[in-house]
Amino acid sequence: MRGYLLRRLLQAVVVLWAAFTVSFVVLYLLPGDSLSIRLGGLEGTATPAQIDAVRAEYGLDDPLYLQYAHALGDALGGDLGRSAQTGAPVVRTIADALPQTLALTGCAMVLAVLGGGAVALAATFTRVRALRQVLLSLPAIGISMPGFWVGLLLVQVVSFQWGLLPAMGNEGFESLVLPAITMALPAGAMIAQVLAKSLTTELAEPYVETARAKGAGRVRIHLRHALRNASLPALTLAAVVAGNLLMESVVVETVFSRAGVGRLTAAAVDTQDLAVVQGVVLLAAVVFVVVALVVDLLYPLLDPRVGRTV
């Protein structure tokens, strides 16, 4: 068990390193003048001396591998550089914005799992054909709607027409409801789609027939036999869903004018604040790695066929 954990941790570190490298390549090596980006649009007014100073400060005259080595070394020490816009350290900037976004993402995740699971279970359980058809088409519709549009519709109806919940801001739980619903919709639809599909597959498996032949009832077969098998494919999606959810915050926080990592990202892209963008990419990779690790540790508990020593 300890050997397994150690190996998994090592894998996680490798993924993070690779994510760092990929983002370094994407952000600093692609065509685009990183100098002018780092000058933050001041190149028109800057004197040659100032430009040289900036070049020296960022080590832009160094060969690429040295730049990379420096950046990697700093990152290992927990330093992801400074924001070109505010001059604050990237790590602190992100850490300050994170709690708001985590609360939002957490709420959305719970909503998505409950809602998606309920739709999938109801759709596969009902014997009313029409109801089943309607329920099965819900996820497809949910996935097809642009998140920012759904948010705006909710604001329009709930906040302005009914005057129920705040349309924007970070104040209190009430301000969390609409953004969380907006975020949960595509994720919940994805969960419902996968779960409904695997439930349908599982319910047609011969072992379900064995259970029926024993005289087991429908509820028992659905929950005790099929659901556990069907949740396995859904579980493997968890890391992807969590990552997508996190990044849906870019759109949702913009629509609802909430402070958080999403807004930070949108602003950073807008001002081409590459250090912050790279910080967010690494954050997303960390989230992915952590969720994937948790899923991997959970998996053998749910599926005896997967040995712990794999």
Binding site: E209, A213, G215, L302, D303
Partner: peptide, 18 residues
């Protein structure tokens, strides 16, 4: 199950794997 038992065709897939 009570009065009529069924022995299915393919044993490898007729038991719940989990």
């Amino acid at each position: 199950g009570r009065s009529i038992g069924l022995i299915p065709q393919d044993p490898m897939v007729s038991l719940n794997p989990v």
